[in-house]
Design a protein around this nucleic acid. Sequence first.
DNA 1: TTATTATTGTCACGAATTGAGACAATAACT
DNA 2: AGTTATTGTCTCAATTCGTGACAATAATAA
Lengths: 234, 234
Amino acid sequence: MEEKRYLPHIAYDSVIFGFSGNQLKILIMKYHNTGLFALPGGFVKIDEDLNAAVRRGLKERTGLDNIYLEQFYTFGDVSRYQPEAMKTILEANGHDVPENHWMLDRFISIAYYALINFEKVVPTPDALSDSCDWYSLNKLPALMQDHQLIVEKALQTLRDNLERKLVGVNLLSPLFTMNDLQKVYEAILGEKLRRTTFQRKMLSLNILQRHDKQYSGKAHKAPYLYSFKQETLI
Amino acid sequence: MEEKRYLPHIAYDSVIFGFSGNQLKILIMKYHNTGLFALPGGFVKIDEDLNAAVRRGLKERTGLDNIYLEQFYTFGDVSRYQPEAMKTILEANGHDVPENHWMLDRFISIAYYALINFEKVVPTPDALSDSCDWYSLNKLPALMQDHQLIVEKALQTLRDNLERKLVGVNLLSPLFTMNDLQKVYEAILGEKLRRTTFQRKMLSLNILQRHDKQYSGKAHKAPYLYSFKQETLI
DNA sequence: TTATTATTGTCACGAATTGAGACAATAACT
DNA sequence: AGTTATTGTCTCAATTCGTGACAATAATAA
């Protein structure tokens, strides 16, 4: 990681949402020998588009291309500047850290959230971390710096966008039941929804393609499987 | 403007909305001797919060404190990097510009929109510009770099936020008629609204305080004046 | 004083949407 | 064949919304 290849003072953080066990989860990194937890993030190369840098990072953490991605806020308070934490991380990794190391500078961070299919992800730590794992939103460890705030703002933005954007598409497998979809909405909104109203609403949007039934082996009526209609995908 | 006092590679741009003559307008700067038009913007001091830097710039351009301000996107494409334009501006101002001048570097720009009371603003150019003036959105001059795109995204965000945030407050005088408010909404949305529906909707929100009537001298019924209820202000 | 004019505040009615529950259909098990 | 849990759909009331009607009214004209 050569200093001259990255724009100084500029970082990004990504809140990567997945859905599993009826819960929203996000990817969290744990740094070597420090007990420090953080959002996956990175830096922007001198000749690289900001969005491309974030996609590059996402690919490294998840193995996935073509991820649904939204930029939602840029955090630029001076209080973010906590060089001790970064120094701890670098030293715990055996780096000799000069006083003027570029990673100890003040950074502003452009924050993104991503929506991905939980099943398809292979969480992968980077050189400084020994784990990259899923955590439920209500069981997050204490996070570095203002990362807790970043997560909260990501969730708020996701909620605000829920009606305007096709959120379910990106968190589910291509085939899903109406109940699966409802669980996603409930996890995002943090509240129970009424089954019949939800079904009527979704069907009236005219974005779902109905397929064969899904026989679960349980003693009750089998639900239809659905996919999102091709033309509605972004 | 000493180099060392600002964070390199980081700028902000602000889309400052005002409402006058039933139209949405924004403030545009014109640089000395160049014919170049741009959004008001600036840089972040080494020890300054990002939001504070933007407010500082707004104060300089408008004379106003306590402005309603929303950050909406950070532009970070490499294609923004057009050092010739900045060099032109600096040279037109009599500066001797070394090859490695910090303002000729690549910048990412954090974009904000502000909503202000047109009446109260005293548009003020900066050292590099000879005017700072109001332009209607549909009569903008050709803008530098990606500033046209920034304006479009600002307007789109403003529209998206219209139902969720109390937008009218910030563009109108403290006392206004229902018709004034409707004109603001129409200017933002770019479409005519139905008078009776609009009135019913606004009154049902329970955010308006009714005051005395406003006698205009015209030959018809006088409308009530309204203000936003104190507790609804942000 | 009495029409006239333009605009405003409110109501009325039907259409469309939403909330809440009822109920029959149905896979698999007893 | 009866039971159970879940699903798809329907109904009815409550609410919101689109649309127009209409009376109230401030200033002007007659």
